[in-house]
């Protein structure tokens, strides 16, 4: 029955030290996944390092070029006025996470470190090429999200490293997050998609959730649609119906979904096709 020791650090450095001092210790952030596993006897670490008191993890910073979000930022925080104005799709994703109670507790760092294929913030983070700042005994390092999340609930984060913050470049233009679930609230994603349109770089970024072991970018779809969009059309960028349809097909090609108790592979492939296209259509007008 371990869990014989619980560290309650107040700084990141203390948390790192606690991890180093206590072999096998696991980090506890918002607890929304961790505690479920403890409650059901599925997780029995010898010790726990609880991050609730580490106030420096709960900061965010918005600059003209980037947004840096502390790992302890809750989903509820992501829906706050400033973050939702610069990262509306992150706020939209956060709004779909669990219940209000879960959104008050669950954190961005927890979503990254848990690395669930259904992690609701991960598609947008993937679309924005998020970088994750980690700190360990030998100092900090910054790693691309795609290198952090290595598989279903597996990461390259070392046992003595703490997720400190997530760095996102700001992209001028609209962004969307859509999530499919069988219930209209409090549901795990069957499929999700984030679309980010950069009106200056003239590119489109698409990332998908719950349709592969890790969040995936639909690179071919991105390349196709960036070329197909008339970026200089009066009234804003637009794309033809045929281009949008091709985009949707290419999005589906990027998915490698499984069939499980929540849904089927075939449906998930269909769903990302529909939602990625709808997300894009909310960003880019359809040419007549």
């Amino acid at each position: 029955m371990p869990v014989a020791r619980v560290a309650v650090p107040t700084t990141v450095d203390e948390a790192v030290q606690a991890l180093r001092e206590t072999p096998g210790a696991q980090l506890l952030a918002g607890g929304t996944d961790f505690c479920v596993e403890v409650n059901f006897g599925l997780r029995r670490p010898p010790a726990v390092v609880a991050l609730r008191r580490v106030r420096e993890l709960r900061r965010y910073e918005v600059t003209p070029a980037s947004v840096v979000i502390g790992a302890g930022t809750t989903y509820a925080d992501m829906g706050g006025p400033e973050l939702s104005s610069v990262l509306p799709a992150l706020a939209a994703a956060a709004r779909t996470v669990g219940s209000p109670q879960i959104r008050n507790a669950g954190t961005l760092g927890g979503n990254v470190a848990t690395a669930s294929p259904a992690g609701d913030t991960l598609p947008l983070l993937t679309a924005l090429d998020a970088r994750v700042r980690l700190r360990g005994p030998s100092g900090g390092r910054t790693v691309a999200l795609g290198e952090v999340v290595t598989g279903v609930k597996t990461t390259s984060i070392a046992p003595d490293e703490v997720v400190v913050e997530v760095v996102l470049d700001r992209r001028p233009g609209p962004q969307q997050f859509l999530k499919v679930g069988t219930r209209n609230a409090m549901v795990i994603a069957i499929a999700s998609a984030a679309v980010v349109v950069d009106l200056e770089a003239h590119d489109v970024r698409v990332a998908l959730g719950s349709v592969a072991p890790v969040p995936v970018r639909a690179a071919a779809a991105e390349a196709h649609i960036a070329d197909a969009i008339d970026w200089r059309a009066a009234g804003g960028p637009r794309a033809s119906a045929a281009a949008l349809a091709r985009f949707a097909e290419l999005v589906a090609d990027a998915a490698s979904p499984i069939t499980d108790h929540r849904s089927t592979s075939e449906y998930r492939r269909r769903a990302v096709q529909v939602i990625a296209r709808r997300a894009l259509e909310r960003c880019v007008a359809r040419a007549a």
């Binding site: 779909t96 969307q176 859509l178 999530k179 499919v180 679930g181 209209n184 999700s192 709808r278």
Partner: peptide, 16 residues
Amino acid sequence: ILALPGGAGATAGPGD
């Protein structure tokens, strides 16, 4: 959006 199919997932527009 909560009044549309898909709820908070924001999957549907009125035209869908």
